[in-house]
């Protein structure tokens, strides 16, 4: 009955099928939010939005993530953890400022307790405004980001392929180095 109920819910909502253009692994860090952005980000997984069907997944570790989603005003007690999460991510990596606090639109609090705007701490690639941004808005922005990434990645792949096809001379250099170490 529960599953039937969910089936009905899904049928009523009638989400369009996903035109998957790849996937993005997301890691969220709350750097001092009011919990609103967390609620709305979590809501993007509910049956009304179901972001996962597009290949957008929240992953447990920054080491598995393509995107760092940062919420809140950056507190002095969170800034080090935030930096460490970013440093743990493999490259290429993107930073998304989620909500008006992270985008720097709202500064409410004691300046002695805040580390400053996110963009002075990490390079921000995408800003999602809203207080908090509605799940629909978060979904649209993240899907847009994924499309941009897919377009870039075709050109990037060509670039990378070119870069990793080394001239013969370089291969010799590596061999010599290897021999030295051996």
């Amino acid at each position: 009955m529960l599953l039937r109920h969910l089936q009905n819910v899904r049928r009523e909502i009638a989400l369009p099928a996903s035109k998957r253009a790849g996937s993005l692994a997301l890691r969220h860090v709350d750097a001092g939010s009011c919990n609103g952005c967390e609620h709305e980000l979590a809501a993007t997984a509910n049956p009304y939005y179901d972001l996962q069907r597009h290949g957008l997944n929240i992953v447990a570790s920054p080491r598995h993530a393509d995107v760092l989603l940062v919420t809140g005003q950056i507190t002095i007690r969170m800034v080090d953890s935030l930096r460490r999460a970013y440093e743990a991510m493999p490259e290429p990596r993107l930073v998304v400022a989620l909500g008006d606090c992270a985008t720097g639109c709202t500064m409410l609090g004691d300046p002695r307790q805040l580390a400053g705007p996110l963009e002075e701490i990490l390079p921000v690639d995408l800003r999602i405004p809203g207080c908090p941004p509605a799940p629909q808005k978060i979904a649209e922005e993240l899907l847009g980001l994924m499309r941009d990434m897919a377009e870039h990645s075709t050109t990037r792949r060509a670039f990378v392929e070119e870069a990793i096809t080394p001239p013969t001379r370089d291969v010799e250099a590596i061999d010599t180095k290897g021999a030295k170490h051996a």
Binding site: M78, L108, D110, Q113, L114
Partner: peptide
């Protein structure tokens, strides 16, 4: 208190009606 933003001290000295923003946030 990782998320301590000092909202209470920030509200001090402001008009009473402003305090609503800090309590809400």
């Amino acid at each position: 208190f990782y998320k301590h933003r000092g909202l209470q001290t920030a509200a001090e000295g402001r008009p009473l009606a402003d305090g609503l923003r800090y309590a809400q946030r």
